[in-house]
């Protein structure tokens, strides 16, 4: 699959979702794995779009590509937003609480990390690089 580049706007999310699902089809992942991978990429991309220089013009760039080998499918999402390592965020610790007492938000990164087999983060020059890995024999 050819890499794609988007301007970091909310309009890009549906194309990003379609791209991830197409990659999971090619890799033969099961329906749940495919859904979970799409969710993870969508949440991180959303985070870049909403929180990483939302007012800057031009918008940061998002770049998407696929690395498929016998064992794994990796989706590589890169962006030129502010440095952000999803592993360094504070995850919600009130998931057991009543919905009345919850903080609004904070679920996105939690969901991004929840089901992928691996999420690796690297900072490369001006780029954040998130590598989402799903095992192919796991369906």
């Amino acid at each position: 699959m050819k890499p794609l580049t988007f301007s970091a706007t909310l309009d890009a999310l549906s194309s990003i979702g379609e791209y991830v699902i197409a990659a999971t089809d090619k890799a033969g992942l099961g329906q749940k794995q495919a859904y979970h991978l799409r969710l993870a990429v969508d949440e991180i991309a959303t985070n870049v779009i909403v929180h990483s220089c939302p007012k800057s013009e031009p918008k940061p760039l998002l770049r998407l590509r696929v690395d498929l080998n016998e064992q794994d499918l990796a989706i590589i999402l890169e962006d030129t937003g502010l440095p952000f390592d999803p592993h360094q965020t504070t995850l919600p610790n009130d998931l057991h609480c009543s919905l009345e007492k919850r903080k609004i938000g904070g679920f996105g990164i939690y969901l991004a990390l929840k089901w992928v087999d691996q999420l690796r983060y690297e900072r490369v020059g001006v780029w954040n690089r998130n590598i989402f890995v799903m095992k192919r024999n796991d369906c």
Partner: peptide, 12 residues
């Protein structure tokens, strides 16, 4: 498909 944005809506 529903992301955390949908959860936020349900919470509200």
């Amino acid at each position: 498909y529903m992301s955390s944005a949908g959860l936020r809506m349900l919470l509200l």
